[in-house]
């Protein structure tokens, strides 16, 4: 469970103060599929970094599974990321010199999971992400965009995280492949009860989630069911 209370983030650059987040609060329960939506400069990337334990808020608290993440050191944040969070990036970020399987195993290597278990978990994650088995030993530069993103999703799944954070996961994919990837997220959410947070600026992408949090100028403007007409129309208006 994710509890965010009155989070602010201020970047100081010389005399300039930029308020990226101005007091954001929400709760996300286990098994929810949430889209955080907003135009560029809205603060959604900053929010994603804090939710992903890549950064800490200037003020406010963030609890992930009862762990207070808002005041941790760099290495403690690394522990949280390794054990509780899975990332899917817009630009995939696979290691080019490694096979699909090796890429998926990477988080387990840092967690010092024994080799046999690593392979078992990685294969299971790749199967869940829907990559064909004959692609497991291909180098990542031999895979198509859709296949690469499946490997990236498998990598996010492999450490059995409390939360999967996907940052514009379809941004570098054509719409057909993008739909397949979003379908994969929906399936992971429905079948495996994964908690998924999708960060996007596209309404069509956000609509794949069950709940949309709309953020603008560092504050939450709307928070509700993605099938709620009011939310959709609001999002449309903002586009």
């Amino acid at each position: 469970m994710i509890e965010v209370k009155n989070i602010t983030k201020t970047y100081v650059n010389g005399d300039n103060e930029t308020h990226a987040l101005r007091g954001v609060s929400f709760t996300i329960d286990d098994g929810e599929f949430v889209a955080i939506m907003g135009p560029s400069g809205s603060g959604k990337s900053t929010l994603m970094h804090i939710l992903g334990a890549l950064d800490t808020p200037t003020s406010g608290t963030y609890h992930l599974d009862k762990h207070d993440v808002s005041t941790l050191s760099d290495d403690e944040l690394a522990d949280i990321r390794r054990n509780r969070i899975g990332f899917v990036f817009q630009s995939f970020n696979l290691l080019p010199r490694a096979t699909a399987l090796r890429n998926v195993m990477l988080p387990l290597i840092y967690a010092e999971v024994p080799e046999k278990e690593r392979i078992k978990h990685a294969k299971a994650a790749l199967a869940n992400a829907g990559l064909d088995e004959d692609r497991y030993n291909h180098m990542s530069n031999q895979l198509s965009g859709g296949q690469i993103q499946r490997v990236a999703i498998a990598r996010a799944l492999v450490n059995n995280p409390a939360l999967i954070l996907a940052d514009e996961p379809t941004g570098n994919l054509d719409s057909h492949t993008g739909d397949i990837v979003l379908g994969t997220f929906q399936r992971l959410n429905k079948e495996y009860k994964r908690t998924i947070i999708l960060i996007t600026h596209e309404r069509e992408v956000a609509e794949h989630a069950d709940r949309i949090i709309y953020i603008k100028d560092g504050v939450i403007v709307e928070d509700g069911n993605s099938h709620d007409k009011r939310i959709i129309s609001h999002a449309k208006r903002k586009e």
Binding site: D79, R81, R82, F87, N93
Partner: peptide, 16 residues
């Protein structure tokens, strides 16, 4: 640089 960023994002510590 990006590879290092990725490694850190998935849980590598400074020491690693």
């Amino acid at each position: 640089t990006r590879e290092i960023g990725l490694r850190k994002a998935i849980g590598a510590k400074r020491h690693d």
